[in-house]
């Protein structure tokens, strides 16, 4: 092909080729603009709004800076909401680790080829169907006339179910209207996000390290405690970022399942929607941001970001 020195495209490309910084700036303009303006800007306006207050008489927003809204956040009722949400996120994360580990270990260590693909698909497939459909399906499964109750009945264990539901804190009229039911659905919905990073972490763990540990005299339990667990911890931390943050921010499951005691997400939703108290909604929205900030700092220390 002839060398077309003066074609426009060639001149343009020469121009950019010799200006690396300009090239980089153009390339990053859109994503950085998006992050800074749209995302960072919203967060900034959220923070700003939390220092305004609502005029209870007129219902309009008073834009003089005040700490009054933040005083409302730190009332017992709102702290209870935050505590309930963080407690649930913690419980769901722990349960996901306990259920996810054997599954992830099995997939990573003892299966290969088709069996591995099938198991990974089995973990992933629920994510392909609508989240709402799955939550409603669980509402039916857990209802007082649902499969779960029927199951207990078949095994003559209805009294066991009754006893569990009578417990304070986790109980309720039926599984679908109890905190326990909420916990079950949360765990089901977010479990895949824990299994996959854990599986990746176990895959990265060389078999020879486990053999070396056994070779040096460690029992299987000791090998797990001293070698396996510390080395897959970054993967566990990565998975827990998902299970923890997704539970923290969710407001659909607590609406559909459970005893309608509010979670942070629900509280924000009702403050900005029904109550029209935007400053309080903004202040409440800061809570998960702060909690996740602390959580991510901890996860970073465990090396979770290298495992993502």
């Amino acid at each position: 092909m002839p060398f077309r020195e003066f074609s426009l495209i060639r001149r343009l490309s020469t121009y950019f080729y010799t200006r690396r910084r300009l090239r980089l700036a153009l390339l990053l303009a859109l994503p950085v603009g998006w992050l800074v303006v749209v995302y960072g800007g919203s967060l900034g306006s959220l923070l700003l709004n939390s220092f305004f207050r609502i005029d209870s008489f007129s219902g309009t927003i008073d834009r003089t800076p005040t700490l009054e809204t933040w005083r409302q956040v730190f009332t017992d009722a709102n702290m209870a909401v935050a505590g309930r949400t963080i407690g649930m996120a913690t419980a769901v994360t722990i349960a996901s680790v306990l259920i996810g580990f054997p599954l992830a270990y099995r997939i990573a260590r003892f299966t290969s080829g088709r069996a591995k693909t099938a198991l990974v698909l089995a973990v992933l497939i629920p994510l392909w169907s609508s989240y709402l459909v799955r939550v409603y399906a669980w509402k039916l499964l857990l209802a007082s006339e649902g499969v779960a109750a029927w199951f207990f009945n078949v095994f003559g264990a209805s009294s066991v179910l009754g006893w569990i539901l009578s417990l304070p804190l986790i109980g309720g009229p039926s599984l679908s209207t109890s905190s326990l039911g909420q916990f079950l659905v949360f765990t089901y919905i977010w479990l895949p996000y824990m299994v996959l990073p854990m599986q990746a972490a176990v895959e990265r763990l060389p078999e020879s390290l486990l053999e070396a540990s056994a070779d040096l005299g460690a029992s299987p339990a000791t090998t797990f405690r001293r070698i396996t667990w510390p080395l897959i911890l970054p993967g566990v931390a990565a998975g827990s970022i998902f299970t923890f943050s997704l539970t923290l921010g969710d407001y659909i499951i607590p609406t559909i399942i459970g005893n309608s005691s509010p979670f942070i997400g629900l509280a924000i939703y009702s403050q900005q929607g029904v109550a029209g108290n935007l400053p309080l909604a903004a202040a409440l929205a800061i809570i998960p941001v702060v909690v996740m900030g602390l959580y991510l700092t901890g996860a970073r220390k465990l090396g979770a970001f290298e495992a993502l």
Binding site: P206, E211, A214, D215, G217, S219, I227, L231
Partner: peptide, 20 residues
């Protein structure tokens, strides 16, 4: 006998040093 109950030790091909 399992490996941890045997009085032998191994130097592995990939050394298998514990990275942590």
């Amino acid at each position: 006998l399992p490996p941890h109950a045997r009085d032998v030790n191994t130097v592995f091909q990939d050394y298998a040093l514990f990275p942590h």
